[in-house]
Simulated scan of single mutants.
Amino acid sequence: MQDTVFIEGLHAKAVIGVYEWEKAIWQDLVFDIEMAHDNRIPAAEDDLSKTLDYEAISNAIITFCNTRQYELIETLAERLCAELIAIFALSSITMTLRKPGAVPAARAVGVKIHRNA
């Protein structure tokens, strides 16, 4: 049985884009993350160290975005998923990454990926 730990609507800033003007500014990104995790042990022991610490994961996402620069959100999503799987020993992750200002006529555009360890 797999449960899900999730983070919705996490905002981070990144320098991302293919155009020269995008490479000179910080842009908003919005993440929704779902991570498979068996919550029975942390629930039984009431122990943070036995579960996925969503604050630590959120901080890792924000730091990742603040310290790297990519042209494509696809690249950012792929590399971020790989890093989160490695750091937090995730068995799987589903990430939706939105770039709200990319297409003025759309509320948001983005990618959704699913990766297994």
Results as ranks from 00 to 15, higher is better:
34 E>Q: 15
85 I>A: 07
37 H>V: 07
42 P>M: 05
105 A>I: 11
86 A>G: 06
35 M>K: 02
81 C>E: 12
29 L>H: 02
34 E>T: 08
76 L>P: 06
75 T>P: 10
80 L>Q: 03
4 T>A: 04
9 G>T: 01
36 A>S: 15
88 F>V: 01
54 Y>R: 06
47 D>R: 13
104 P>E: 05
49 S>W: 08
60 A>G: 04
14 A>N: 12
40 R>G: 09
76 L>W: 09
33 I>Y: 00
1 M>F: 10
37 H>D: 05
113 I>T: 03
89 A>Y: 13
73 I>P: 14
60 A>C: 11
69 Q>I: 02
52 L>T: 12
117 A>C: 15
26 W>K: 12
110 G>D: 09
92 S>E: 15
85 I>V: 14
26 W>N: 08
63 T>C: 02
88 F>L: 02
49 S>T: 07
39 N>E: 05
2 Q>I: 04
33 I>K: 00
92 S>T: 13
33 I>Q: 00
91 S>M: 08
94 T>F: 08
41 I>F: 09
17 G>I: 14
18 V>M: 11
99 K>Y: 09
108 A>N: 13
112 K>L: 10
68 R>G: 05
43 A>D: 15
108 A>W: 15
117 A>I: 10
48 L>V: 09
39 N>P: 01
57 I>N: 05
34 E>V: 07
67 T>W: 01
22 E>R: 01
25 I>H: 08
17 G>Q: 14
62 I>W: 00
107 R>F: 08
90 L>N: 00
109 V>L: 09
29 L>K: 03
63 T>G: 03
85 I>N: 01
32 D>A: 11
112 K>I: 12
85 I>G: 00
82 A>S: 11
26 W>F: 10
54 Y>I: 02
48 L>P: 06
115 R>F: 11
61 I>K: 02
77 A>V: 12
63 T>P: 02
88 F>N: 00
115 R>S: 07
98 R>N: 11
92 S>L: 05
41 I>G: 01
45 E>Y: 09
82 A>D: 11
74 E>R: 02
76 L>D: 03
6 F>S: 12
86 A>H: 12
63 T>L: 14
11 H>M: 09
55 E>G: 12
10 L>H: 03
80 L>P: 01
106 A>N: 13
117 A>E: 14
69 Q>A: 03
27 Q>Y: 08
107 R>G: 09
37 H>M: 02
30 V>P: 02
45 E>S: 14
98 R>I: 08
11 H>V: 12
14 A>V: 10
6 F>W: 11
29 L>P: 02
40 R>M: 06
53 D>G: 05
27 Q>M: 03
85 I>P: 01
94 T>M: 13
110 G>F: 08
3 D>Q: 03
91 S>T: 12
41 I>C: 11
28 D>K: 13
90 L>K: 00
65 C>L: 10
30 V>T: 13
108 A>I: 06
